[in-house]
């Protein structure tokens, strides 16, 4: 277990460094942050000063090495726009994004897992087809459009929810639905497939033959095994949701990392964009790691293999 963990952790770190290098090169190749800092209508001399002051005039390799060394020491640099360190900005924004991600994931699991189980218990039933239809629709629904439609429906036509902001829980309802709905199909399908396979397995048939309570068989024996792949999928989905929050947060004006990312892109605030890419990548890698570990914990066979 320890070896497994250490290996995975090493890989995760390597991936994070690699991703940061790629994104660093891409971002720096594409734009000049000094002009963005100087602001609209700035004089050339101001821009030159800023370039030197922030060190943008040094070779890219040097800038990256410098950035990486600080990042590894926990210093993500200063925002070129805000008079604050990127770490401060993230500390302020990340909780909102994580809250949204967790809400969305919970919503998704709470709807998708029971649907998947029920669909598997009665394959080809009306319920199964309904679940499948929901899944297919969910995958095809553009989330930004879904968000706008919800606003028109629930804030304008039937005004029960606020259109945007993050002051109260009510502000999180629509973003949760939009973000959660997007990952429901995958979770539901996987639950259904897993349950179908497990229900066909010998030990379930034996358990049933022994006359155990069908519900106990379903939830205690079958679901526990069928859920294993769903766990790691959920971790991955959570990672996707954090990435997808860029669009959702900007529509619902949630002051999270996604909105910060979008605005930092607009302002060419590269240290902030860079740090957010890194943090999201690390989160994703970390979540996959957690998913793997949970899998190993739920299914001892993996540990051996």
């Amino acid at each position: 277990m320890t070896r497994f963990f250490v290996q995975r952790l090493g890989l995760a770190l390597l991936v994070a460094v690699f991703v940061s290098l790629v994104s660093f090169l891409m971002l720096r190749a594409a734009g000049d942050p000094a002009i963005a800092i100087a602001g609209e209508g700035a004089a050339q001399a101001d821009i030159e000063n800023i370039r030197i002051q922030y060190g943008f005039d040094r070779p890219l390799v040097v800038q990256y090495a410098d950035w990486l060394a600080s990042a590894l020491a926990g210093d993500l640099g200063r925002s070129t726009y805000f008079n604050a360190t990127v770490a401060e900005l993230l500390a302020e924004r990340l909780p909102i994004t994580l809250t949204l991600g967790l809400c969305a994931l919970s919503f998704s699991i709470i709807v998708a897992v029971p649907l998947g189980v029920l669909a598997a218990v009665r394959p080809n039933s009306l319920l199964d087809r309904l679940a499948l239809t929901i899944a297919v629709f969910g995958q095809a629904l553009p989330n930004f459009w879904f968000a706008l439609i919800l606003i028109v429906l629930l804030s304008v036509q039937f005004p029960i929810l606020p259109p945007s902001g993050n002051e109260t829980w009510a502000h999180f309802v629509m973003p949760t639905i939009v973000l959660g709905y997007y990952s429901m199909p995958a979770i539901m399908r996987l639950t259904r497939t897993g349950m179908l396979q497990v229900l066909r397995a010998d030990y379930i048939r034996t358990a049933r033959a022994k006359g155990l309570d069908p519900l106990t068989v379903l939830f205690k024996h079958a679901l526990r095994n069928a859920i294993i792949p769903v766990v790691s999928l959920s971790a991955v989905q959570f990672g996707y949701m954090l990435g997808g929050s860029v669009i959702i947060e900007s529509i619902f004006a949630l002051h999270g990392v996604g909105q910060l990312a979008w605005e930092s892109i607009s302002r060419a605030d590269l240290p902030t964009v860079q740090a957010i890419v890194l943090v999201l990548a690390v989160l994703y890698v970390g979540l996959t790691l957690i998913g793997d570990l949970l899998n190993a914990w739920l299914d001892p066979r993996i540990r051996v293999a």
Binding site: S155, V156, Q157, P159, I160, L161, P162, P163, G165, E167, T168, A170, H171
Partner: peptide
């Protein structure tokens, strides 16, 4: 109608 709707929606959001 829109004004009423928006009024109501925002009123729900916070005092």
């Amino acid at each position: 109608a829109l004004v009423t709707a928006l009024l109501a929606s925002a009123a729900l959001a916070a005092p």
